[in-house]
């Protein structure tokens, strides 16, 4: 029995080890990112192929389950980390990431990028963005609410499904959106939303799935979600509900670790990531808006519904200092 265990373990070891037997001679760039970025459906494989074709290097994407996990991992590893680049932090945790002092300056000129607001960050390079919004089915819901207040005023059986801000990136984004729109009045808005909240899921995918199976009228997601259904499923029934309070953008960023011994290669990768070739891969794999003008290369679905008119913003330091407090207030308000 023990022999069998040992043999099986040895087989597992070999299986796992075999995957890492790769060419040693080329310079190697290790990118930590969230799982769906690295997965076969995400931008990872195409970016790897595109960048390796021009860099004479090997690039490894290592997926951890979400953006916060990526940050926590580099924090735990500190200067000993294998990572050269981190891809996929968002504006909600950028402040905290910056405060760790683990990130180097990117030194790239980003003035040509198209973003919700001008980009002047010395450490983080934006590579896509979207806005937090409620997504709905236009057939089932011909007249969606046009503001939080309108949503609150609807009958209690109008249900939305959202994510827990403590465990989910969009869940935290949702909270920050309400904070940006209402500030001190945010707890009041949460209390108003309470009867409409069907449930608060652990992650985005459970919530989105609940919505797709018809359990809720709207789901907290991104303004770009309808584009997925239009492009990949040829289904244009989905839209986002534009709110008159405005929408908070989620900008996804990448950064170079100061501990990396591949600073130049890392910078080249970030330049590629924000180049038109790299950006062309983003919309239909990560389902977000590109940060350059792709012209006709951007599927029409992304422009079929215009981006929100009013754009909100939150100060990075305020987010870092207060998000825990805001979470407690919001949870208390809906309890």
């Amino acid at each position: 029995m023990l022999d069998l265990t040992r043999t099986t373990l040895a087989v597992a070891f070999t299986l796992a080890g075999g995957a890492y037997a790769v060419a040693q001679d080329l310079p190697r760039l290790t990118v930590y990112t969230y799982d769906s970025f690295a997965s076969e459906w995400g931008p990872g494989p195409a970016l790897k192929a595109g960048f390796e074709a021009q860099c004479t290097c090997t690039i490894d994407f290592l997926g951890t389950d979400d953006a916060i996990a990526v940050l926590r991992r580099v924090q735990l590893e500190g200067a000993a980390t294998e990572a050269d680049v981190v891809v996929g932090l968002d504006t909600a945790i950028a402040g905290e990431a910056r405060a760790t002092g683990l990130f180097a300056e990117h030194g790239l000129d980003l003035s040509g990028l198209v973003l919700p607001s001008e980009w002047t960050d010395a450490q983080f390079v934006p590579f896509d963005y979207g806005y937090f919004a409620y997504v709905y089915n236009t057939e089932a819901l011909p007249e969606p609410p046009t503001s939080f207040e309108e949503l609150i005023a609807l009958p209690d059986d109008f249900k939305i499904v959202v994510q827990d801000p403590r465990s989910s990136t969009p869940g935290l984004g949702h909270l920050l959106w309400i904070e940006a729109a209402y500030g001190e009045r945010a707890p009041e808005i949460w209390a108003g939303l309470a009867p409409h909240i069907l449930t608060m899921t652990r992650g985005w995918s459970e919530a989105y799935n609940l919505f797709l199976s018809g359990e809720a009228d709207m789901v907290l997601s991104y303004t770009t979600s309808p584009a997925y259904h239009a492009v990949a499923e040829d289904d244009d029934r989905f839209a986002y509900a534009e709110f008159s309070e405005g929408h908070l953008p989620q900008v996804e960023v990448a950064g170079i670790l100061a501990s990396s011994d591949q600073q130049d290669l890392a910078r080249d990768f970030l330049a590629y990531l924000t180049s038109p070739e790299g950006q062309a891969e983003i919309p239909t794999t990560n389902w977000m808006y590109p940060v350059v003008d792709l012209g006709d290369a951007l599927p029409e679905a992304f422009t079929a519904q215009a981006q929100p008119e009013t754009i909100l913003a939150l100060d990075e330091d305020a987010v870092t200092a207060n998000s825990r407090l805001w979470i407690e207030q919001a949870l208390a308000a809906i309890r």
Binding site: A16, A19, D35, S36, A38, S39, E40, W41, G42, D60, F61, L62, G63, D65, G203, W204, S205, E206, Y208, N209, S225, Y228, H229, A232, W287
Partner: peptide, 17 residues
């Protein structure tokens, strides 16, 4: 990176719509 299990693959599929 290259290593994945069936439940992990399922979660990835869910995360990618």
């Amino acid at each position: 990176d290259s290593f994945s299990t069936l439940p992990l693959l399922m979660v990835r599929a869910l995360g990618a719509y």
